[in-house]
């Protein structure tokens, strides 16, 4: 068992009601993400309002809530797909105010999409190579003239792509067209592609949607593995409560665009407001 895994098991959750949900081990390092009073309106509809959250350096956080609660909108705000109408986001100590999606990604935030957005007509490997765009670079001229930098860069990209694909044991699929992969594999490829951008915060929008229970189980282990291996923070939106409760250290519940609860899985499961709004009454047996 690795050092980090052991450390994780010993970790006691410290819910901080005024701020967010920070595991103890991250107390002494600055948080990776701080969202303050974040909000957005769509023509009068407040899709997200007064969203406050702090995520620790190596925390796995969950974002749950009923359909239409504003979870995906939060991701779009954090990745600057939408510009917030209120509040601010700090990523690794940088204010994201006024920046665009590309700049936010370069500062260390990567994501997957609820409705999969792969480059369907490209190979699995090329999808990952696009994720490596800003990690292994060479210029246009070098590429056209096939200068030594091109061969070196291509070789590095190829090796790095296969290494990343091997996280999900997908290295043998490298030459397959991404659009022809089964659904579950497409979701995994999106995670690999996002990881390739070398993020410090990885946002996963319903990563287990459309997966069978076996695949979900495997994904759960892999999410923890990715965090341990890359030492990054992960925030995930998910409707599968087994996955959320199994892997998340801190959970944030959203309803009608507002946070109604924050805490450890145990606290969330026994929180009457959350049960009322989302989880529903526990079934007998």
């Amino acid at each position: 068992m690795s050092e980090t895994t052991r450390r994780r098991q010993n970790t006691k959750m410290v819910p901080a009601p005024s701020h967010g949900i920070i595991p103890e081990r991250d107390l002494y390092s600055s948080p990776v993400l701080e969202a303050r009073h974040l909000g957005i309106e769509f023509g009068g509809l407040k899709a997200v309002e007064d969203f406050n959250l702090i995520i620790g350096r190596t925390e796995i956080a969950g974002l749950i809530g009923p359909n239409g609660a504003g979870k995906t909108t939060v991701f779009n705000l954090l990745t600057k797909v939408y510009q917030p109408t209120m509040g601010s986001v700090m990523l690794n100590g940088h204010d994201l105010n006024g920046l665009n999606t590309v700049q936010a990604n370069k500062l260390g935030i990567a994501r997957t999409f609820q409705n999969i957005r792969l480059f369907d007509n490209m190979t699995v490997e090329d999808n990952v190579r696009i994720g490596l765009h800003n990690q292994i670079k060479y210029g246009m001229f070098t590429g056209i003239c096939r200068l030594p930098g091109y061969w070196k860069g291509e070789k590095q990209q190829h090796e790095k792509a296969l290494e990343l694909l091997s996280i999900f044991d997908m290295q043998d699929l490298a030459k397959v067209r991404a659009g022809s992969l089964p659904y579950g594999a497409q979701r995994r490829l999106e995670i690999v592609r996002a990881l390739a951008t070398n993020p410090s915060l990885l946002l996963l929008d319903e990563p287990a949607a459309g997966m069978n229970p076996h695949e979900t189980e495997e994904l759960m282990n892999n999410i923890a593995k990715i965090r341990d291996q890359f030492q990054i923070a992960i925030m995930l939106i998910e409707h599968d409560m087994n996955l959320v409760m199994g892997v998340c250290e801190g959970i944030c519940v959203l309803n009608y665009g507002r946070i109604i609860a924050k805490g450890t899985p145990d606290e969330i499961q026994s929180n009457p407001t959350v049960i009322e709004a989302y989880l529903g009454k526990k079934k007998e047996g």
């Binding site: 990604n105 957005r117 369907d120 490209m122 190579r129 060479y138 246009m140 291509e154 996002a194 951008t197």
Partner: peptide, 22 residues
């Protein structure tokens, strides 16, 4: 090449390409 893949990524799915830092 790297640039060509970025060009085609931007064509196929602009939002995903931007999320990848292109």
């Amino acid at each position: 090449s790297r640039s060509g893949r970025a060009i085609m990524a931007a064509r196929d799915n602009r939002i995903a390409a931007e999320a990848m830092g292109i």
